[in-house]
Nucleic acid binder design. Structure first.
Lengths: 255, 255
DNA sequence: TATTATTGTGTGTAAATGACACAAAGTATG
DNA sequence: CATACTTTGTGTCATTTACACACAATAATA
């Protein structure tokens, strides 16, 4: 494990990035009635990590996050929200991306990873079926994991996931959700399952339907979802115009 | 305006701080039925700025923010919340704290201020009457300004204030507020005025009282507030135990 | 054709909300 | 000292929303 060899001029070496600042993305997807997070498995330690990156000298954090999202998922227009900064001075002490740890055949800058990093946490909501999961240069695998799986994350990455979920739950209170997590056409039971999964508890079927319909953000389609067992449910789609309006103005809210 | 003279080893010079990272605090106070923000007036340009600071090598952002709060207000235990990161690469281009701008008799590091900064926005809620407003080394004055006064802030500081207020309004929906902004004993009309000021609209006196009492976070005191004109209102205090519980668990919230 | 699980739809009660009225208490005015 | 004026304390009613629950319709399958 030599430390001093750099094989090529990489982004890290050419000082393309600002020191001390990173970002990590909690990318939520919904599949098989489970809420999932897109994770990386590191080449060297086989630990799990969140997709993340660094801030280029001339870009905003949002642009950096979108860049990371695009690289890991192939997707462009996705719901993305900054939710918290993690700044424990000790959090990056044991970073497996530090020069000591990463593979010798990776070109790297000696100093960059050794520095202390604060990381800006983002969460994203994506359509599971549209994601083309792609590992980064440090990773051998990019895959979905259930949010309940807490095992073997590097640094504070599992804490970041938990915090993202908490913020997502709060968001549910006064913002519509689902457009980014479900396919274009979906059934009421599917939408309900999504809500139940995020909230971590069951909801009454009939009251849920009444409430969600009262938001007026759904279009009921003539068709029904065939093929499943039992009575075939209607299909719905989001009314994008009203959905966007609800995103901006909030939903319930007494005060 | 010489650029190369440093008179003493300051924090900036000794590399006590991390590059590229700053924080700014929107410190809210309530006085004369007005919502106010603690501001600094810079020595050189006489522009207004938010109290802010930088991140020491061995502290968290929260610790840094508390340090700034303590220095500007003299207060220790105050409500503090991280709400947004501002990362426009151009935001710190015209920083009046850059070496070109600050007074010659201030020791400084040539490079530090010239760098690009992202700033982490915090807002704080404080008891106006307990604050001992103290300027920092760049400022000649530390004073309260109405949030409606948008004039003459440096960089994106007024945008930061507006964003903080927006987050505060959202917080009002599902968290109790007031303990940090009002004196220990207060009247119902005073509490209502606070809510109206934050929300930017009037509320029905009787419905407000019923609602706020339903939260069970207030203790009604036997005494009344004497001295004012007209009928003397009852005094209340917050029930800290229940207030804290409400902070953790949220207030209304259907889902 | 009957069974079973699931979906579509409706109903009644309790709780929360919003609009509003009147009496009591304090100051100011003649 | 009586009256006007303002503000506070408290209550009522109609409407809306939330919550618990029941029954009929539909689709696969046995």
């Amino acid at each position: 494990m030599t430390k001093k060899i750099t094989l090529a001029k990489t982004s890290f070496e050419t000082k393309e990035f600002l020191d001390h600042i990173s970002l990590d993305c909690v990318i939520f997807g919904f599949h098989d009635n489970e809420l999932k997070v897109l994770t990386l498995q590191l080449k060297r330690t086989l630990e799990n990590a969140l997709p993340g990156g660094f801030l280029k000298k001339e870009e905003t954090l949002e642009e950096a996050a979108k860049r990371v999202l695009k690289e890991r998922t192939g997707l462009d227009q996705i719901f993305l929200k900054q939710f918290k900064v993690f700044s424990d001075p000790l959090r990056s002490k044991n970073n497996p991306q530090k020069p000591d740890y990463i593979d010798d055949d990776l070109p790297y800058d000696l100093d960059f990873f050794a520095k202390r990093f604060i990381t800006i946490g983002y969460y994203a909501l994506v359509d599971f079926t549209k994601v083309n999961a792609t590992p980064d240069v440090f990773s051998q695998k990019c895959e979905w994991k259930n949010i309940t799986e807490s095992s073997n994350y590097i640094l504070d990455h599992y804490e970041i996931i938990r915090d993202a979920l908490e913020v997502l739950r709060l968001q549910l209170r006064h913002q519509p959700i689902g457009y980014n997590l479900l396919p274009d056409k979906f059934t009421m039971p599917e939408l309900q399952k999504l809500y139940e999964t995020i909230l971590g508890r069951e909801l009454d079927r009939r009251n849920f339907q009444r409430k969600i319909l009262s938001y007026k953000i759904l279009n009921k389609l003539g068709e029904r979802k065939k093929g499943g067992a039992h009575k075939s449910p209607f299909l719905y789609e989001f009314n994008l115009e009203k959905y966007q309006k609800a995103l901006n103005e909030g939903l319930s809210g007494t005060w």
